[in-house]
């Protein structure tokens, strides 16, 4: 049987919220995705101990849990940086040049989508359409939207934001 996760980890207050989600679903296996959402909301990402605990509580085989975690783009098994830049790669944003924003990020900051800087300050993420296509191209810096900008404008804004953030 899977080894129980460390007690230290479980003493974290945030587990109460996650346990509440599982309880609401009577600890059924089908609560897995809802529970993973709650855990990621609480901890920012899903580490090995978290997954072990969830698997044990929902009596779900470890491989099934890991299979689900890696199937869905939203779930992250590594911590994100303190600041995140999200580049929308939906069609409207692509047609309006966000592919070049990604290329620019790689060229100037050596960050590919999914990467975090070595000092853990900044993460670059891509999402498949935030649904704000009329504002294309859309880039989201720490939750605030940079919209309808040319490549030069948006990269200038990103540079400024990165300087402030870093």
């Amino acid at each position: 049987m899977p080894t129980p996760p460390s007690d230290l980890h479980l003493q974290d207050k945030r587990w109460e919220t996650i346990d509440r989600v599982m309880r609401r679903h009577d600890f059924r296996q089908d609560a897995l995705i809802e529970t993973l959402h709650a855990a990621q909301d609480a901890f920012g990402y899903l580490d090995a101990d978290t997954l072990r605990h969830i698997a044990a509580r929902l009596k779900t085989p470890p491989s099934k849990v890991y299979g689900v975690v890696t199937f869905y783009n939203h779930f992250k098994t590594k911590p994100k940086g303190e600041h995140t830049l999200v580049v929308c790669t939906g069609t409207a944003c692509h047609v309006k040049g966000n592919d070049r924003v990604l290329a620019w990020m790689e060229e100037h900051y050596q960050l590919k989508p999914g990467d975090t800087t070595t000092d853990n300050r900044i993460s670059l993420l891509e999402v498949r359409c935030v649904g704000a296509c009329a504002l294309a191209p859309v880039v989201i810096a720490d939750g605030s939207i940079i919209a309808k900008k040319s490549l030069a404008e948006s990269t200038a804004m990103i540079r400024e934001w990165l300087n402030d953030a870093a």
Binding site: G90, T91, A92, C93, H94, C129, G131, A132, C133, A134
Partner: peptide, 12 residues
């Protein structure tokens, strides 16, 4: 689950 990039009817 409106996943089509470039579509936001359902969101709206």
């Amino acid at each position: 689950d409106e996943g089509d990039p470039g579509a936001f009817m359902d969101r709206s």
